[in-house]
Design a protein around this nucleic acid. Structure first.
Length: 425
DNA sequence: TCTGGGGTCCTAGGACCC
DNA sequence: TCTGGGGTCCTAGGACCC
């Protein structure tokens, strides 16, 4: 059996742990630059506010009633680690799927005891972190997702729902569930399924897997098997290295200045390189992209990207930033007001398994060791003394890449100096 | 004035090779 | 007038997830 543990309105729940007066009120958390709603309390959902709704398009009445907060990723990331540390006490097999969701394997556990175990897990998370979670237990991940949804929506389950593949209760649930509520089936696929007469999760489960694969893909075929209780989606290794890595941001205001794009790309590139070193990989290529704001129909539009190969697989910020600047030079055009840019590191390879070219083996080794030591020092200083203690190139005041975050709460769990600060009123 | 930032996997189609 | 067949690799783009 596998359990999916999913926090309820995770970002909002984190905020409420440290501001209990937000309980019972409509609360939303905004994306970077305070742009869109990315987390909603039940009260905010009840007001009809959609996920991803742009803040500036919300009706004034809702903006008056609701508490809308800037996103505080330092806080959410730390709370997420705390939740996962508790999960690890309940099973050796924890796979972190996202900041607010983890799969927990109960292979080898007494099946009859799993539900009780999950209730204790849920209560412990709530008691020790303050975060409410729902638990869905089933033989496959797709069914665990279904179970989790039921656990959250149907009070009778008290937060823990177990679904066995062949149980009548499972069938009843799947017959009432729209196909598009199944994990991995979204609008496009749902529209095509409807043309085949498949509207519910149960109908999808009963469809011929062969036919589904031909009409769609192996991805959807696996979902059919999973709905039937046959595992078809594997548990990935915990902490497996990413295959690509991106850092990008919208500007807090549009900018046409090449220097501002260059400064933003230095910032993003340096952060991407740091992530790369943290996961122990090397990149073989750097992709740079820029674009204008596609929502502004009256503005001239431009979007472009460029892949710049690196001379050798590298995790050296200087080489990555140099490549990013070459990419920018190739795609920057005058006469546009840019809204966003970013750096993606591609073709990542494991640092320990790097292949040395003959040239590197003879000439480059000393330089490489020097680079490794320098980067290690940069990372340590930034880790211990705070981000941006060491950075590449001069910062600018009032840079467009600086985020707007006007309703930011304190980093309660990671900064002593912010613990007692009260900022939201 | 203001519309996020990451990721994954799969498929189709072109380039290239023999 | 005539112009194979099959394989691999790579990239772009679609669709989906949180």
């Amino acid at each position: 059996m596998i359990a999916l543990i999913d926090a309820n309105s995770f970002y909002v729940s984190c905020e409420r742990v440290f501001a209990p007066r937000l309980e019972g009120r409509p609360v939303g958390v905004l994306s970077n630059n305070d742009g869109c709603i990315v987390a909603r309390s039940e009260e905010l959902k009840a007001l009809g506010v959609a996920m991803g709704a742009p803040r500036h398009l919300l009706p004034p009445a809702i903006r008056r009633q609701a508490v809308l907060l800037s996103s505080n990723y330092a806080l959410y990331g730390d709370m997420s680690r705390r939740v996962n540390a508790i999960l690890a006490e309940f099973s050796p097999d924890v796979e972190v799927y996202s900041i607010d969701e983890s799969f927990v394997g109960f292979g080898g556990f007494d099946p009859a005891a799993v539900e009780g175990h999950c209730h204790r897990l849920r209560e412990t998370v709530r008691r020790d972190t303050g975060i409410p979670v729902g638990v869905g237990v089933a033989p496959t991940r797709v069914l665990a997702k279904v179970a989790n949804r039921a656990a959250k929506r149907m009070p009778a389950y008290e937060g823990v729902c177990r679904l066995d593949a062949e149980a009548p209760a499972t069938r009843a649930l799947l017959e009432r569930l729209p196909a598009t509520a199944v994990w991995g089936v979204a609008r496009r696929t749902g529209e095509r399924l409807a043309l085949m007469g498949i509207h519910t999760a149960w109908q999808l489960r009963e469809a011929d897997p062969e036919r589904i694969r031909r009409a769609f893909s192996v991805v959807l075929e696996r979902i059919v098997w999973e709905l039937r209780g046959h595992p078809a989606i594997a548990l990935e290794d915990l902490g497996e290295a990413r295959q690509r890595l991106m850092v990008s941001r919208s500007f807090s205001r549009l900018t046409g200045e090449r220097d501002e794009l260059a400064a933003a790309l230095r910032q993003h590139g340096a952060q991407a390189a740091e992530k790369l070193r943290r996961q122990g990989s090397l990149a073989r290529a750097v992709l740079v992209f820029v674009r204008t704001n596609p929502f502004l129909r009256d503005e001239p539009q431009y979007a472009n990207r460029r892949v710049v190969p690196l001379a050798r697989p590298s995790d050296d910020s200087r080489e990555i930033l140099a490549a990013a600047q070459r990419g920018l030079a190739a795609i920057h055009r005058e006469g546009y007001r840019y809204q966003k840019c970013g750096v993606m590191l591609l073709d990542l390879v494991d640092r320990e398994r790097r292949q040395l070219s003959l040239l590197e083996a003879t000439q480059g080794e000393a330089a490489r060791q020097c680079s490794d030591r320098l980067m290690a020092v940069v990372d340590r200083l930034n880790r211990e003394m705070g981000r941006d203690t060491v950075r590449f190139g001069l910062p600018r005041d009032n840079s467009a890449w600086r985020l707007r975050c006007e309703r930011l709460t304190s980093r309660y769990t990671t900064r002593w100096d912010e613990l007692m600060r009260v900022r939201i009123g």
